[in-house]
């Protein structure tokens, strides 16, 4: 760390303290922040991406800092809900969240960019079973079994399976003997691969990317059901973000596929690039959410 970094860090801390005071006063927006010339952007990440390794985020942070001409910090948390809470409270500038929390909290987030996977901002939820299970063709086949979800706030890892089961006339809460959360898609794959769970709901993009990175793990599982396509977990900004910052970040992300350095990072993410915001992409999730919440009580 150079002396500049230290200064930036100190300023960020000061800003957080002031933010705390503002929240205590009940103010939801905080003005004057955009006046700062060189700022540090805080970006939250969740298990929607696989490359949560420190090395990748470090490289990406350096790339963003270079392109944004300012500081960038990645903030990681154990569950989706913590990141959702942070961005809703303006404690993060940007976050890579799941489509479900975004749809559920549209008021406190602003859609920033949509990752392009196989050229589209769409992905699927997979129902996976152990490779040894050759019979399961649907959720109904797993009646009385042990089932692993990734996160109660995950779209592909929780909401979509609920939606599909309900649509098939199944009761997700009674169908399985027991369910549990692993709080990461990769761990759902592990749980199914080792046999801890008889089935699991996993982000299709994560599973496919894992199949490239750790084929020996995914080889122990079999995809039994692929859901319809839903909006890919998007990058969002806090609702109060300044337009200039918003556009600066959006330009950097969208421009990644156009420059070699960005393409290297995208390849590590197994993504094609980023598209500008199109909230309609998440209508499918909104519909599923509405369908599910009308029929059962969703965990918070």
């Amino acid at each position: 760390m150079g002396p500049d970094d230290t200064k930036l860090g100190a300023r960020a801390k000061q800003r957080r303290l002031m933010l705390g005071a503002a929240l205590a006063l009940g103010t939801s927006a905080w003005v004057g922040r955009s006046a700062a010339a060189a700022r540090t952007v805080r970006i939250g990440t969740t298990a929607v991406i696989l490359e949560d390794q420190v090395s990748f985020l470090d490289d990406w942070r350096r790339y963003l800092e270079q392109r944004l001409q300012g500081g960038a910090v990645f903030v990681q948390r154990g569950s989706y809900r913590e990141i959702t809470a942070l961005i809703s409270n303006d404690e993060l500038d940007f976050a890579w969240v799941c489509g479900y929390p975004y749809v559920a909290n549209r008021a406190s987030m602003r859609l920033l960019a949509m990752p392009l996977y196989h050229g589209k901002p769409l992905y699927q939820s997979y129902l996976i079973v152990p490779r040894s299970d050759g019979v399961t063709r649907s959720y109904a086949d797993l009646a009385g079994k042990l089932f692993a979800y990734s996160d109660p706030n995950s779209n592909s890892g929780f909401l979509v399976p609920q939606y599909l089961m309900l649509r098939d006339g199944l009761d997700p809460q009674a169908l399985f003997r027991k369910t549990f959360f692993t709080y990461a898609h990769r761990k759902v794959v592990s749980a199914v691969a080792t046999g801890v769970a008889d089935g699991g709901a996993v982000d299709g993009y994560v599973w496919e990317t894992l199949a490239l990175l750790s084929p020996e793990l995914t080889a122990k599982t079999r995809v039994a059901v692929k859901s319809p396509e839903f909006g890919f977990p998007p990058l969002v900004a806090r609702a109060s973000i300044g337009q200039r910052d918003f556009l600066a970040m959006q330009d950097v992300l969208v421009g990644m596929s156009a420059d070699p350095q960005g393409r290297v990072l995208l390849k590590r993410l197994n993504l094609d690039g980023f598209a500008r915001d199109d909230p309609k992409t998440f209508d499918g999730i909104a519909e599923a959410l509405a369908y599910v919440s009308a029929r059962m009580r969703l965990p918070q």
């Binding site: 549990f180 692993t182 709080y183 761990k187 749980a191 080792t194 801890v196």
Partner: peptide, 9 residues
Amino acid sequence: RDEMWQAYE
């Protein structure tokens, strides 16, 4: 808390 995965890990 009946956290089966945590117990497994």
